[in-house]
Simulated assay, not measured.
Amino acid sequence: MSSRDDAPREMPKALVEDYLEQEAGTRAFLDDLQKLAAEGRRATVRDRLREFAEHSQGAFFAVALSLGGSAQFFADVEAQMDVETGGKLRDLKETYGNLADEFSIVRSEQTKDRHNPVTSLSTATTYQSDEEVPLVEYTPLSGEMELYEGRESPEEILQVAHFMVRATTDALDVALENDQPVNTEELSALIDRREELESELGALRDQIDELRRTPVDE
């Protein structure tokens, strides 16, 4: 076994070395991903990235960090290696920057045990005159990948929201019962989300009260 195998490898230098060992093949792979993304085949891009992360973890993280564009990452690379290598990684960001979101999501899957995390929600509203019910059309997005499409009434949407909140409280109950800690970042974000929900529920309460006061034509 070589001394390189025995000794701890310096980060992020070790990741970059893994990338450089397969630079040509990785760039060809990224070219293919760009073509797939241009064709709208986001699910295929996601699956290919998962395979890349599984089989070439070091190179995957080197590219993901390069596309993330952290100034500290590039500074560390240049300090541990050289300016030329830093330039090669900056070129990845310039050439393949449109893949940054997909890399970020798969990186989150790899490091945080997530799967297709929802990053945004596309919505539109319409009205079903026969039922006299507004409808919400929605598409959860993971990066630019559409997970599914739905069209439901406000009551049905709130039922889904109720399911999700109940699942959240169940998860927190289990953590409390088993003395499992929740990290500060997650707890802080939970507080923010709760306050946002309370604000939206206040607006919803006002809207429902107004609708109840509005005469309905029989």
Rank of each mutant, 00 (worst) to 15 (best):
K35L: 08
D173E: 09
E54Y: 14
L36H: 00
E146I: 05
G150R: 13
P8G: 04
D217Q: 10
S129M: 11
H115W: 12
V83Q: 15
Y19G: 03
R41I: 03
V106R: 02
E200N: 07
R90E: 09
V83I: 09
A14V: 03
L201Y: 14
T123F: 04
D76R: 07
A75K: 11
Q57E: 15
K13Q: 07
D113G: 02
E195G: 02
D173N: 12
F61L: 09
E152D: 14
D130L: 03
Q34L: 06
L135Y: 01
Q207G: 06
K88V: 03
R50P: 08
E137V: 03
A64K: 12
I208S: 12
D82S: 13
P134K: 07
Y96Q: 02
A167K: 15
Q72M: 07
M81K: 12
T95I: 00
R48V: 11
P117S: 10
G143T: 04
V16L: 05
D5H: 09
E152Q: 15
E149Y: 03
Y96A: 05
Q57A: 12
T119C: 05
I105T: 02
A171M: 08
R42Y: 09
V133P: 01
R27A: 01
N178M: 03
P117D: 01
A75S: 14
D91M: 13
S104V: 08
R166F: 05
R107I: 01
E144N: 12
S120V: 12
E210F: 09
P181D: 06
R90T: 05
V63N: 00
P117R: 11
T119Y: 09
P117L: 10
G25L: 07
R166W: 07
L197R: 04
S122I: 05
R194W: 14
H162P: 05
L67Q: 04
D192L: 01
E137R: 14
K35M: 04
P117G: 07
P134I: 08
L15D: 12
E78H: 01
A161Q: 15
T111R: 15
R41Y: 06
V63I: 06
E131D: 14
V216P: 03
D31T: 08
Q180T: 11
A100S: 14
D5W: 09
